[in-house]
Nucleic acid binder design. Structure first.
Lengths: 223, 223
DNA sequence: ATTACTATACCTCGAGTAA
DNA sequence: TTTACTCGAGGTATAGTAA
């Protein structure tokens, strides 16, 4: 992983070079820009080059630096993260395809300790089963946003036999019906959303496997 | 200065909390989010708090974290830098007020070694004097952008008596007349722009001290 | 349970310097 | 000139652990 000063160097060079992604610099000048030593500037250019963020060609008095695609990409990624941090979205819309679960959802959702929490925190008593929606690849990164969000906390618990893990929930609507997305606490990358609702959604919305539905997920606990 | 991981922690918490700038977290969860140890997460929260980026209140199982104005500010600052890095501006517009120089500009601009370079690199033979423009406070940060830009390099030189420092130039227009901004190589914060031009600008544009002019500065060497 | 101190291992920085 | 190596000083991270 890039250290802070390496990232700074990459950013400052990109700013300096402008829209053409190359330019000339020497270690003394870079050291000045970063308020560090010439030796460190040298090391930074070597690291950035080794890691493939820049390529360079040493000349007599300065070096020609090209910022690679990978270098631009990491800057852009940081920009995106900061944008989502400072201009937070309130809800996300995804498209999902109804699919059959393995009956596991029904088992978990039926545990008393969970049910009490659903009632308390989601303000409804759920139908004892889940609706599973497969999310398209194009919407997968929207779902990934949920990994960084805390959501409504559902605590785990232990019985004599086994441990039931914690989860987090987000309020959502499917075809205008109130429900909630349930995700395991430890975020695993998944392309399936599990929904709970006061209603048996398959019946209420006349859904069968393969049907497409629109889901609007609310990131805030209440509006 | 914030270390990379401290900055990451601040950003991740901001993303997690959304538009309300507070939320709950514990050191174990934060450690997970940052792929580091619980001890480091603890230290990070202590540092961020000591430096005034967050305030916190420890509860039984988690802490209530509030991201302060200073914390938001440093995130926003980074966002701005990255935006300008990845969406580079081609030119900047500032307003300046004509003022009298000390005659120094005339002395420097008249040095042969400089004149040859102006001719070669700016493609004009300058009038032997500079037009000094005082930049308003509100435009000062636009000018600060130039510090990070390389511009057109004007080399320094030595005579028997003394050393003449290097400079950088940016093409610009004042009231539609071609000219160039000249800045010392070592960027010093200044609120005065020195312009050179093929013409005696005061005469050509009928300017007197105190007159306001608009300057458009081009950041790229040519369009 | 979670937090954070201590101690040690590890890493990063820059002065000196060779090429 | 500028670049980058070595090495010692200082700073940072984590395991162990007390509160």
């Amino acid at each position: 992983m890039l250290t802070r000063i390496e990232f700074e160097a990459l950013k400052k060079m990109k700013i300096m070079f402008g829209s053409v992604n190359f330019g000339f610099i020497n270690t003394i000048k870079l050291a000045e820009m970063l308020a560090t030593s010439q030796q460190s500037a040298s090391r930074i250019l070597i690291s950035l080059s080794n890691e493939g963020y820049i390529t360079r060609k040493t000349e007599s008095r300065k070096q020609r630096i090209v910022i690679t695609e990978k270098g631009i990409e990491i800057l852009r990624q940081e920009l995106n993260e900061l944008t989502s941090a400072l201009n937070p979205v309130e809800n996300i819309d995804v498209q999902g395809q109804v699919q059959s679960g393995l009956g596991e959802g029904r088992y978990y959702v039926s545990r008393k300790y969970y049910i009490v929490q659903f009632q308390e925190k989601l303000h409804f008593l759920p139908y004892l089963g889940t609706l599973n929606l497969r999310i398209s690849d194009s919407d997968a990164e929207k779902i990934a946003l949920l990994n960084n969000r805390s959501g409504i906390e559902i605590h785990g618990f232990k019985t004599e036999d086994r441990t039931f893990g914690g989860a987090k929930a987000f309020r959502c609507k499917v075809n205008n019906v109130d429900c909630a997305v349930l995700m395991p606490e430890r975020s695993v990358h998944r392309d399936v959303l599990e929904l709970i609702s006061p209603y048996y959604l398959r019946e209420k919305l006349s859904l069968k496997d393969g049907d497409e539905v629109k889901v609007q997920i609310y990131l805030k606990e209440r509006n």
